[in-house]
Structure formats: structure tokens, C-alpha cells
Nucleic acid binder design. Structure first.
Lengths: 230, 230
DNA sequence: AAGGCAAAAAGTGCATGCAATTGCCTTTCG
DNA sequence: CGAAAGGCAATTGCATGCACTTTTTGCCTT
């Protein structure tokens, strides 16, 4: 390419690398277990190895990549056990966020949440999985922001990004779309009612169900990405 | 080279730097707002700038240092608001850990928790703040590990390390020692009873109180470390 | 033919060097 | 005398180079 990176050109080269590589992991272009070769990445992005190295270090600190000293880096491979632990954590974190939302969201935040949520009902009727996915992400982001707690936000965002590679296909499951909307509805209702505990409980259950829906894909995904990994 | 670093000599140089600098931040040798000069650090640890740079990058990803592009790194300065958010998160996380402990700890884990906790009672009677501090850290670590959830453990450990610079002096407060032990006792009792919700509630309250006890020191600490920071 | 060893190839880890940016200090002009 | 501008020192950001570790390959031995 000529014009270098497309959208990701703010900040230092290292930041760009972190975003570029991180995005590719989160969106599944790079799959768990895949080797991350410094020279190839440097060549691919037309920079030297140094910023790539630093980026890999930071991504490793975030848990998205795994670094084996002198043996290169790979996209973080996650055991079934750790994955379950992350979903469990996610459920707790979303529960906390929803609870805080019920207690702390401003009037306009509540209105926006309600409005967008109702708008997404149309996508369910149409079975528009791609578009619903977008709304779904937005919905959860509203929850994280609405908790008005910067640190909880960080923890939640981080956990979500680490789970992202494993939840891609969730809406392909039959009936998942409508069910997801109903679960969202329970959360929204509780939040608007100002009922923290109920909102928390609803959000936790929502994530737990997503967890079960996603778990199916894990084994296959990793097997395909790193078939020879003992 | 000769002896190089004293205790922290496992892993790559970068890892050593992350631990060395991270430790100094967490233990308060380096204070919030303090400038982290690459050349000075490199000279101080007798390495080149490269591993120092990478370490700073990783510590920045962990939230312990703050990096201003082209303008160097400083030990993360935390606003009152963010600090409150971290303590709030810590309370929730410890609550979750304690709840899980009550539900999941093995028999030997429960016995060890109980034994060590009872042993620490002696330190309270002696008013041994330093030693109690050690037991306190150990106690909380047991809670994090006992939750049997690797990801919750990571989140908790990370949050705790980021809070560490701000909670150093907590036991100097009059009566804090005895009060801390009583709070621990409530947590232990609930866990041994297998009462998850009660254990969670007790742990949350414990942290909330520590939070209030620590908040006092924040302003002073940062004011001394970075007196000219607007 | 299979196994093992050794040398080469590949790739990582760290150091050094240079360009670029920032901050400070001096100088000059209003 | 104060403020703005310009230049200089200090420091960061990235590239490159070299040493060391791991992995592969090819040859020799059994």
C-alpha cells in the first residue's frame, strides 16, 4: 500500500501498531495460536521491527498475545478453563455496570438507551444479524459508560476485547437474535425502573447465555488456527 | 556482565525492567507524577534504552505509568474521581472473590485461611503494623486465589497494584489494625460457613472502609510528588 | 531406513545511532 | 520592562546492526 495505514494513523507508530495488530486479533483476522512474526509484521506495515516489538509487548501486557522468550509471539491461546473464567468475569462485570446504570445514569442516558434499544427491535424482525451485531455492541458500550466508573469501564472493555475473538458467531444460532433482544429488554426495563439489583441480575444472565452460545465455537476455531500445537 | 540486578533476574531484560520499575511504583519509591527519564533509568539499571522503553510501554498498558508522546513518561497520576472509581471497583472485585471463595474453596484452602487469620491476631495485640501489613497482603491474596477464577484474579491483582501507591499508610491510623482484623474475621466466618452473599458483602465493606482510610493520604502524596502539575 | 548430530538459517533480544520533536534560554523588538 | 521569536540543548522515536538462541536441514552413522 502507498498511503500507509488507512484509518489508524493517529499517535505514534507504536500506538498504530498496537491498534492495527490488536484490531486484527479482536476481529479474528489473526486467530488464537497464530504466529506473530516480527519481521513479517514490520514488513506488512512498512515499519521497522522496533515499534512492532513494543506493540507486541503491550498487547502481551493486555493479554491479547502470548510471548515466549526467544521463541516469538502468538495470538493468545486460551484454555477452556480460562475462557470460562473470562465469561464468568464478564457476567459479573456487566452485572455491576447494569446495577450502577440503574443507580447513576442521567436522564438523557436513559432516554438514549431506551430509544436505541427500541429501534433495534426492527432489526430483530428483519433478522438482520450484521446490523444487530452493531447495535448490540453499542448497547453494551452504553451500559459500560453509563456506570460512570472509569475503572470498571477499563476492566470491562479489556475483558470484552479479550473475549471478542470467541464470540463472533453467536448470532448465527437460531433464535439467538430474538432472545438477545428480550434479554436486553429485561435489562433496560430494570434500569429505567431504577432497580439496580434486578438490572444486575438480568445483565449477568444475559452474558451467561451468550457464554454458552459462544463456547461451541471455541474448540473448532483454535483447532483450525493452530492444528499442530502440542 | 557481573552480578547485575539483585533479586529480579529471571526472564528477559524487558521483564526485569517491568518488574523493577513496576515495583518501585507500587511500593512508592517512585511517586505519582514523578518523571521517568529513559536515559536515567537505563543508566540506573545498566541497560540500554530499548528495554526501558519497552518496559515503560508495558507499564503504560497496565496503567501504572502515563505516556505523553514525545514528552516522556511519568508515574500515573490519578484523579480523585478515578481513584474513587478504582476503590469502588476493588470493593466489587473483592466481594466477588469472597463470594466465590465461600462457594469454591477447597478444604485445605479454608483451613489455611482460617489458620493464618487466627495467627495474625497476635500481631494486632502487639500492634505490629509492618508484620500485619504482610499478613494482610497474604490474606487478600488467598481470597483472590481461592476464587478459582484466573481472570478475576488478573483483574483483581491489576487493580490492587494500581491502588497500592495510595494505600500504604492505612494502618498508621489509630485503631485501624484491630478494625481490619475484625473485618477479616467477618469475611473468614462467612466463607467457612459457605455463605457466599455474606462473604461478598463483608469483603466489599472491608474495602470500602480501607478506601476511606486511604483517601486521606492521596492529596498530600501527589502534591509532594508533583507540586507543579496543573 | 531411521536416528542423531552438526552446521546453517531464521528469528529474537538488546545496543547504538540518527532524525525529529520539545522545552528552555537567550536575544531582540515593541 | 515585558513579550515574542529564534536558536540550542536535551530527550524521545524509530531504524539498523550485531550477538545469541532456537529451529531446521542435511549428512553421517548405526
Amino acid at each position: 500500500m502507498s498511503g500507509k495505514r488507512s484509518l489508524i494513523r493517529t499517535g505514534t507508530t507504536v500506538d498504530q501498531m498496537v491498534r492495527a495488530i490488536g484490531d486484527r486479533i479482536v476481529t479474528g483476522v489473526l486467530r488464537p495460536g497464530e504466529k506473530l512474526d516480527e519481521v513479517s509484521l514490520a514488513a506488512r506495515f512498512e515499519v521497522s521491527r522496533t515499534p512492532v516489538r513494543e506493540a507486541l509487548g503491550q498487547l502481551s501486557a493486555m493479554g491479547l498475545v502470548e510471548r515466549r522468550p526467544n521463541r516469538g509471539a502468538i495470538v493468545a491461546v486460551v484454555t477452556q478453563e480460562h475462557l470460562a473464567s473470562m465469561f464468568e468475569s464478564m457476567a459479573e462485570l456487566e452485572g455491576i455496570c447494569a446495577r450502577f446504570c440503574a443507580e447513576r445514569m442521567t436522564g438523557s442516558e436513559r432516554r438514549a438507551l431506551e430509544t436505541e434499544h427500541q429501534a433495534s427491535a426492527r432489526l430483530v424482525r428483519l433478522g438482520a444479524e450484521e446490523d444487530y451485531e452493531y447495535f448490540n455492541t453499542e448497547f453494551h458500550s452504553r451500559l459500560y459508560r453509563g456506570a460512570h466508573s472509569t475503572h470498571i469501564y477499563e476492566l470491562t472493555a479489556m475483558t470484552r476485547s479479550r473475549l471478542a475473538p470467541f464470540r463472533r458467531a453467536q448470532f448465527r444460532l437460531t433464535g439467538r437474535l430474538a432472545k438477545s433482544w428480550q434479554e436486553h429488554d429485561a435489562i433496560v426495563t430494570a434500569i429505567l425502573r431504577g432497580d439496580g439489583p434486578a438490572a444486575g441480575k438480568a445483565a449477568m444472565e444475559h452474558v451467561s447465555i451468550v457464554s454458552e452460545a459462544s463456547a461451541v465455537f471455541v474448540v473448532d476455531d483454535q483447532a483450525r488456527a493452530a492444528p499442530l500445537h502440542p
